[in-house]
Simulated assay, not measured.
Amino acid sequence: MKKVTAFAPATVANVSCGFDILGFAIDELGDKVSIMSNDSGRLEVKSISGDGGKLPMEADKNTCSVAIQAMLSHLGSDQGFDIVLEKGLPLGSGMGSSAASAAAALVAANELLGAPYSKEELVPFAMEAEKIACGAGHADNVAPSLMGGFVLIRDYYPLDLVKLPVPAGLHCTLLHPHLELKTSDSRSVLRKEISLKDSTVQSGNIAGLISGLFLGDFQLISRSLRDVIAEPSRALLIPGFYELREEIRSIGALGSGISGSGPTIFVLAPDKEIAIMAGKAAEDVFEKIGLEVDVYISEVNNKGAYLLEDQI
């Protein structure tokens, strides 16, 4: 029997002004999924590690199996698979945990099926898994986890994905304070309506951020990392958020924001040295308020999900 293992990276969704339409991938941090074909015609989640026993083993509730089933249904296949998930991402972290599991599962299963789909074509199947995980099939985590780099979701109907350039030297610091924040709670505090003024400001910022990526203009990126729609409400759920923002401005970072629905905070920096300084500043801020924080320093991952091994 052939076994395939794939890795899919953590992601930052929204990227401040790109609410629900922009995300990027992180290096090294992520989930692994091993897939083996079986003769049962069923998808069976055999084991999950690294989740503290919190994730469901049922095939109709687990993001790995839900994503694979969506792909099999599209193919008209009744192939069965055994699934082993190794979580490298904390749950409810705002780092695209459910998306990474689905993306890794799809890349591995796609390989066993003879690679009928490109990674971009796998995105809709991963979106089906996101519906199970967080109630909505957004692509701003699953698309960059599969495809790598920065990905813009220009439209959902039909799905229109645009991979954006990554300026040389751009680094990200991920700061994960030790508190769990459910996506449902983060969405519940959002305003139901926004003003024309806020819509205009947000549109200018997302246009500026994308232009800055194309131009390699770090100062334009910095000026554009401002969210006037989701962040003002969500930041209140994350202790130390504004204190950290003030600290990272003083060390030359480009800007910061909430990663996905939080509580993880991302910082973009023009080089690795400043990214490391941002991590140290975060440790100081969170120590003062009595919260432990995990710090991850990474370049933007342009590779996305990939195969780790292909064994017979």
Rank of each mutant, 00 (worst) to 15 (best):
D140V: 05
V107Y: 02
E130W: 13
M147Y: 01
P124E: 05
A139C: 14
T200P: 00
N205D: 09
E86A: 14
S118E: 00
A104S: 11
L170N: 05
K182N: 13
G96C: 04
V151F: 04
L181C: 03
G204T: 05
A168H: 00
K131F: 04
A99K: 10
H178I: 00
I132H: 13
M95T: 12
S97H: 09
E193L: 15
V201F: 04
S93C: 10
D78F: 15
I206N: 00
V162M: 05
V201Q: 12
A136E: 13
T173W: 06
E128M: 08
S186H: 14
Y117C: 01
E128N: 05
N110C: 06
Q79K: 15
E128C: 07
F150K: 03
E111M: 02
G88L: 13
S98K: 09
S184K: 15
S93P: 08
D78V: 11
E111R: 14
N110K: 03
E111P: 00
V142C: 14
P177R: 01
A133V: 03
I132Y: 03
E128G: 01
L91I: 07
H138A: 11
A102I: 13
D160A: 08
H176D: 03
I206F: 00
V142H: 09
A133T: 03
G208C: 04
V107L: 08
M147F: 01
S199D: 01
L75F: 13
R191T: 03
A133F: 09
L122S: 02
E86Q: 14
A104V: 13
E121G: 04
P116M: 15
D140K: 08
S203V: 02
P90N: 06
T173F: 07
G204M: 10
I194D: 05
N205W: 00
H138I: 13
A102G: 15
L146W: 03
G76L: 12
L196G: 01
E86V: 02
L89R: 10
C172H: 04
G92R: 03
S97Y: 05
R187E: 14
D140W: 03
K131N: 08
G169A: 10
V201L: 11
A100G: 15
G92Q: 07
Y117D: 06
P177D: 06
V123P: 00
L174S: 09
S77K: 15
V189D: 06
E86S: 12
L106R: 03
I132L: 12
S97C: 13
L196Y: 10
K87I: 12
A115K: 07
F81C: 09
I194A: 07
E193F: 05
A133H: 09
S73H: 10
D78N: 15
R154D: 10
L89I: 10
T183F: 11
G114R: 06
A102V: 13
D140E: 07
I194W: 08
L196F: 04
Y117Q: 05
A104F: 03
A99D: 11
G76A: 14
K131A: 10
D140P: 14
A108E: 02
T183S: 13
A143G: 07
E120R: 00
L89S: 00
A136R: 13
V201H: 01
G204W: 01
A105K: 07
L159T: 02
V201C: 02
T173V: 12
G96W: 02
L209I: 04
S93A: 15
I194Y: 06
S118F: 01
